[in-house]
Design a protein around this nucleic acid. Structure first.
Length: 601
RNA sequence: GCUGGUGUAGCUCAGUGGUAGAGCAGCUGAUUUGUAAUCAGCCGGUCGCAGGUUCAAAUCCUGUCACCAGCUCCA
């Protein structure tokens, strides 16, 4: 239940509050000081704020434990109570270097190398200091010891580089008041209840089986309804827009992916090649599970000579791909090893590129609208000019990035640019969503690709009968059906809108005497395509309702003597509670209309 | 892949070296019930898996698998 007082407590992100920035920065320093007091061997590295707190990375030979966290927090409170002034001092690079060398902190020296003047140090009294740009509070006693918490331990690589030393990271949070901290904890608890892994299990949507393997979800009948409805919905939208559905196999010769370049780039991230014998294996001759659908669709395009009149050609497939994700990356439905992409590849002429791109974005936005997804960010994932992991000419990249930028500007979308996030063959427009724990995931994506048409030597015959090269647009509004469902579960907190709910109506008989009528009504509902079921458990009404509520069934229809008398149903919905008796025909009408309009009862 | 944590009945969890427990679910029986739990009985576990230490291991040690948090990666 929503607590009205706690609802009023605002929890600003760090970036929205100067005060919290100072509190968290200073608290992270206090934590580092406490750690070094208790663990003199610990070396300090960096300790920035995060949107909900802060962390500090330490190099320390022994692993910190949960017990250590308690001791560290105690020590922090002592430091706070010492009322140490926080003093800023600006020093020259040479002076900073001398002082860092004096306390033997090699990581800090590296940081010094990478920062620009002015170089500032912050002292906690005269007991401890850190190289830091601030801002900070003026005195440690401005921190409320009851408003801080050390949360969790984790490993983190120095400078985010997995080839470098792994450090120990301590995450903590700090607020202005204990009430804020309590509210923060409460919201974290709430978020945990929305976790799609928990809800997916409770609602019986999907399972994982040890014997099948990690990252390989199995879809139950209920979960399959969800998947199928989503797929059918998108297929209908695609038919309206001239897409052509295709089907391609799950495996292919490794050569296919050598031509596309995936093998060279992602060999380690693919399931191992299947070879007939050792000789074939050594010659890299064999079959692989597909990690992408594009090379298959390209083959279909190539299977015939295409005219400029055939373009744009939009080949679409719900294609299941397999990627050997690192074991530590797997989790729920958001990162799996086998997943289904609502993939399509559009082969277009250069003069069609901008319009096609716009209509793809339009499709994606309309899909999100129907799914009531609002909290997403548009990311322009461009090439990192420093990196050499991309294929293709600079000219092709510039053209592709230009097309994407023109599209978001034409549509006046809010977006941000992310250099280094491009695919190896082209830039992307990605739609980023957050899960219940505020982790970000890419769902929809549109990519402009000049490179694969080149690698596969794609052509069409132009008006002057010259051979021209088409451009490819890769696009997937859902991205991955699995990930989408994970996000939807969390977005809806398990309360699916009527058109998506695996069970739309559950009929509850007040006593077994009324079951025949209940079955009759259920059959009527099923006959018009409503997913209805009768509760046969024979429990009392209170229990039936409780179970239906727990199963998050959107519409409960209660049948007793009164309803049979009036040929009606007592309707109770998850969203609005008791609605009273409504004639059966009206109920059927309302439900079918609500489903058709993606609305509620 | 790396660091740390967790793994006990279908589910949620208790059990720190001495005979494996609870609630819910399931089954059976009684009850025939009007808007979030009717009562009673019964069933249910190689304590993730494999080694080891010990008279004795869910409990201690080693390895392994899976999951969780974070890091790294993500076509």
């Amino acid at each position: 239940m929503v607590n009205s007082t706690s609802e009023q407590i605002k929890l600003p992100k760090t970036s929205e509050s100067e005060k919290l920035k100072k509190i968290r920065h200073t608290t992270s320093h206090i934590m580092a000081m406490a750690v070094q007091k208790l663990f003199p061997k610990a070396q300090v590295t960096i300790g920035p704020w995060t949107e909900n707190g802060f962390y500090y990375d330490f190099d320390h030979p022994e692993a910190f434990t949960e017990k250590d966290l308690k001791a560290i927090k105690k020590e922090m409170i002592k430091i706070i109570n010492q009322k140490l002034p926080v003093i800023r001092e600006e020093v020259s690079r040479e002076e900073a270097e001398t002082r860092i060398k004096a306390i033997n902190e090699p990581y800090k020296l590296e940081i010094l190398d990478s920062i620009h003047e002015p170089i500032s140090l912050y002292y906690l009294g005269d007991k401890w200091w850190d190289l830091c740009a601030g801002p900070h509070l003026e005195n440690t006693n401005e921190i409320n010891p009851k408003a801080i918490e050390l949360e969790t331990l984790a490993g983190a690589y120095w400078r985010g580089d997995s080839n470098k030393q792994q450090l120990q990271r301590i995450y903590g949070t700090a607020w202005e008041t204990p009430e804020q901290l309590a509210e923060y904890k409460r919201r974290k608890e709430e978020a945990l209840k929305r976790d799609h892994r928990k809800l997916g299990k409770e609602l019986g949507l999907f399972i994982f089986a040890d014997q099948v393997g990690p990252g390989l979800p199995l879809w139950t009948p209920k979960g399959t309804i969800l998947r199928s409805i989503l797929e059918d919905f998108l297929k209908k939208e695609q038919v309206k827009r001239g897409y052509l559905q295709v089907v391609t196999p799950h495996i292919a010769r490794v050569d296919l992916f050598k031509t596309s370049g995936h093998w060279q780039k992602y060999k380690e991230d693919m399931f191992p090649m299947m070879a007939e014998d050792e000789e074939s294996a050594s010659l890299e001759r064999g079959f692989v599970l597909k990690p992408m659908n594009c090379p298959f669709h390209i083959q279909i395009y190539k299977s015939d000579l295409r005219s400029y009149r055939d373009l744009p050609m939009r080949l679409a497939e719900f294609g299941t791909v397999y990627r050997y994700e690192q074991s530590g990356e797997l989790g729920g439905l958001t990162r799996v090893r086998g997943f289904t992409v609502d993939d399509s590849h559009l082969f277009v002429r250069p003069d069609q590129l901008d319009d096609e791109f716009l209509s793809v974005v339009d499709l994606i936005l309309s899909v999100f609208k129907s799914l009531q997804l609002k909290n997403f960010k548009a990311r322009l994932s461009f090439r990192d000019p420093e990196s050499d992991k991309y294929i293709g000419s600079d000219e092709a990249w510039e053209k592709a990035e230009g097309a994407i930028r023109r599209a978001v500007q034409t549509l006046e979308m809010e977006y941000f640019e992310a250099p280094g996030e491009a695919a190896f063959y082209g830039p992307k427009l990605d739609f980023i969503f957050q899960d219940a724990l505020e982790r970000e995931w890419q769902l929809g994506t549109v990519q402009v690709d000049y490179n694969l048409p080149e690698r596969f030597d794609l052509e069409y015959v132009d008006t002057d009968s010259s051979r021209q090269r088409p451009i490819m647009i890769h696009r997937a509004p859902f991205g991955s059906v699995e990930r989408l469902i994970g996000i939807l579960i969390e977005e809806y907190a398990g309360d699916f809108p009527l058109w998506l709910a695996p069970v739309q109506v559950r009929l509850l008989a007040v006593s077994n005497d009324f079951l025949p009528y209940t079955h009759e009504v259920c059959a009527k509902m099923q006959a018009v395509g409503i997913r209805a079921e009768v509760d046969l458990s024979g429990e009392r009404l209170g229990k039936l309702i409780r179970n239906a509520e727990k199963d998050k069934i959107p519409v409960m229809a209660i049948v007793g003597a009164n309803e049979i008398e009036a040929n009606s149903l007592s309707i109770r919905t998850r969203a609005s509670g008791e609605l009273g008796a409504i004639p059966v025909t009206e109920v059927l009408d309302k439900i079918t209309k609500a489903i058709a309009s993606f609305g509620n009862f």
